[in-house]
């Protein structure tokens, strides 16, 4: 509730932010503050220096061109969920953003802050993994690099982002005419975080699935691609039976560590991964499951 003392700097540009990170050993970036401030208040994080990048305008906004959605790291969940352009270009992003936290969290919280926090229970890592997004990163001396989610998320609260790097934007492909995407989650009744989240992106021609990218999160340290489910789905008609059959392969892809707690055990979460994948596919393809 009462954060410890820290020094505060406000950066005007990304370069300045990187400069501040370089010159202060345990400096931390803050934008919307919805990942860092709760830790600060509980005194679980104690950076001596906070670098506020919240007002760097070059990091804000949504642009859609040439089949790519580019979202500045400081774009808030609310801006994403309320973007009509985005709803048309990549509806799953708007929809997922609209289900994060609550109104105030969405008003302040940013997609970049969420992604670099790498909380296993948050929604963006799962959705962006299924979408095959790319993370644009800027480092010291103006260097830039682009990383895919699979190479970015290492473990709970751990990424490959360097201490002197800033995530500047996230890119995702727009969804084509034949593509359907959906994110389904079981939310924790207290925190609202994902106990299990499943994101599906499928290409449908006629009624046959010709391609699929499916990821789950919440129950795993980092989002996991459901390749067995994808394989089982491709080439099949998207009906109730085939969806259920494909989803039943989920456990094949969940051989690594599964998270569990008193509210939801690993066993339960694993079973729910299959259920949420099914729900996401049903909703994406508008197949009724009753």
């Amino acid at each position: 509730m009462y954060a410890p003392e820290f020094e505060y700097h406000r950066a005007a540009t990304v370069a300045e932010a990187i400069q501040l990170l370089s010159s202060n050993e345990d400096a931390k970036l803050i934008a919307g503050g919805h990942s860092l401030l709760p830790l600060l208040k509980l005194r679980l994080a104690r950076p001596s220096v906070l670098v506020d990048i919240g007002r760097i305008s070059e990091l804000k906004g949504i642009t859609i061109s040439d089949g790519t959605v580019r979202i500045g790291a400081l774009t808030t969940h609310w801006e994403i969920s309320s973007s009509h352009d985005l709803e048309h270009a990549c509806g799953i992003m708007a929809e997922a953003a609209g289900g994060i936290g609550d109104t105030q969290v969405r008003n302040r919280g940013t997609i970049g802050g969420n992604v670099v926090h790498a909380d296993p229970a948050s929604d963006w890592p799962t959705v962006l993994t299924a979408l095959g997004a790319k993370f644009n990163i800027q480092g010291a001396g103006g260097s830039t690099r682009t990383v895919e989610p699979g190479d970015f998320f290492v473990g709970p609260l751990t990424t490959t982002l360097g201490e002197q790097e800033v995530l500047t934007s996230i890119e995702a492909p727009t969804l084509g005419h034949h593509q359907r995407a959906e994110y389904a989650k079981m939310a924790h009744p207290a925190s609202g975080f994902a106990v299990v989240g499943a994101a599906v992106v499928v290409t449908v021609e006629g009624d046959v699935c010709t391609a699929a990218r499916i990821a789950v999160g919440g129950l795993v340290p980092v989002p996991v691609r459901m390749t067995s489910v994808e394989t089982a789905l491709v080439g099949k008609a998207l009906n109730q039976e085939n969806i259920a059959e494909a989803a039943s392969h989920a456990s094949n892809d969940l051989q690594g560590e599964i998270l569990g707690d008193f509210f939801a055990s690993a066993e339960y979460r694993k079973a729910m991964a299959e259920v949420e994948i099914r729900h996401a596919l049903f909703h994406a393809t508008e197949v009724s499951h009753h």
Binding site: F263, A264, S265, Y268, A271
Partner: peptide, 11 residues
Amino acid sequence: LSSQRVWQAIQ
């Protein structure tokens, strides 16, 4: 009556 408890009982 959490979802997990109900689900486990059903299983």
